[in-house]
C-alpha cells in the first residue's frame, strides 16, 4: 500500500435501518498512527460508524477500505488488525477475567505461551491482576470496562476503535485508560475514539470528526483548541446542522 494512502478510507458511506437514515454520505480518511475523536450527540451515528468500520455491519451504500481491503467483503483479512471496545462489555459473566481473555486469545490464533504471557501483562496493566481468577459477573461496571479494554487490546491490533471508553470509569480507571491510549499512540497505532467527553478530546487527539444527524458536520484539527473552545465549536456545529 502507498505510504500516502490513508489506512482507513470511507467514501460516500450511508447506512439506513428500515426507513431511518443513520449515516448519510460520510467521507473521511484516517492516516496510519493518527488518533481521531468522533464526537456527536446521542443517535448521531457514532456507534453505527464504528460497527461499520469493525466489519460488524454492512453499509447500505458507499465503501470502506482498511489497508486497501474492502469492508465487509474482505473483512477476514483485516479482522486481526482491529480491536473494538464497545459500550457493551462483550464478556462472559460465568468465566473469570483470565478465562475470558484466554478464550478470545484462542479465537485470534494466539499460541498458549503467547496467551499466558500477554494476558498476565494486560491484566497487570489494567489493574486486574489480583482479580484474574474472579468471575467477570462479579465485577463492577468499571472493572468490566477495564477487562474489556484488555480484550480489545489482546491481539495488539493496529487499529483501535473505542466506543465511549470512559463511560462508567472512576478517576483511577479513566487514568489507566488514558495511559493505554497514550501508549497505543506511542506504538503508532491508529485510534478512533467516540466520546461525549469533550474535555478529554484535545488532550488525546489532534483531529475531531463531529457527526450530526448522520453527516460529518466538522472534520478538523483540534490540537490547539482548549476544551472550552471545542465545546463552543461543538454546540455551534450541532445547532447549525440541526437548523440546516
Amino acid at each position: 500500500m502507498d505510504e500516502k494512502t490513508p489506512l482507513i478510507e470511507v467514501e460516500d458511506l450511508s447506512k439506513t435501518f428500515g426507513l431511518l437514515p443513520v449515516l448519510r454520505s460520510v467521507n473521511f480518511g484516517v492516516a496510519r498512527a493518527e488518533t481521531i475523536m468522533l464526537l456527536g450527540q446521542n443517535g448521531g451515528g457514532k456507534t453505527t460508524l464504528l460497527r461499520l468500520l469493525a466489519g460488524l455491519s454492512k453499509p447500505t451504500t458507499g465503501a470502506i477500505r482498511i489497508g486497501g481491503w474492502q469492508m465487509p467483503t474482505e473483512a477476514m483479512e483485516v479482522r486481526r488488525q482491529i480491536g473494538l471496545l464497545s459500550h457493551q462489555p462483550l464478556l462472559y459473566g460465568n468465566l473469570s477475567a483470565r478465562e475470558n481473555l484466554d478464550f478470545f486469545g484462542k479465537l485470534y490464533g494466539m499460541a498458549k505461551d503467547e496467551r499466558a504471557e500477554r494476558i498476565g501483562a494486560l491484566l497487570d496493566q489494567v489493574g486486574l491482576a489480583k482479580r484474574a481468577d474472579s468471575l467477570a459477573r462479579g465485577f463492577s461496571r468499571g472493572m468490566q470496562q477495564r477487562l474489556s479494554i484488555a480484550r480489545a487490546n489482546l491481539h495488539q491490533p493496529e487499529i483501535l476503535l473505542l466506543d465511549e471508553p470512559f463511560t462508567g470509569l472512576d478517576q483511577a480507571a479513566a487514568e489507566t485508560l488514558e495511559g493505554l491510549v497514550l501508549s497505543a499512540q506511542r506504538e503508532e497505532r491508529t485510534l478512533i475514539i467516540a466520546t461525549h467527553q469533550l474535555g478529554r478530546a484535545p488532550t488525546l487527539a489532534g483531529r475531531a470528526l463531529i457527526l450530526s444527524r448522520g453527516q460529518i458536520a466538522f472534520d478538523g484539527n483540534i490540537e490547539t483548541m482548549s476544551a472550552a473552545n471545542l465545546g463552543e465549536l461543538y454546540t455551534r456545529v450541532c445547532n447549525g446542522a440541526a437548523m440546516a
Partner: peptide
Amino acid sequence: AQEGDQGNLDAMLLAPVS
C-alpha cells in the same frame, strides 16, 4: 441469549474466525 445479551456474539464475529 448468553451470546447476544452482552454482545458477546459481536466479539466472536470480530475475531478472524470463519
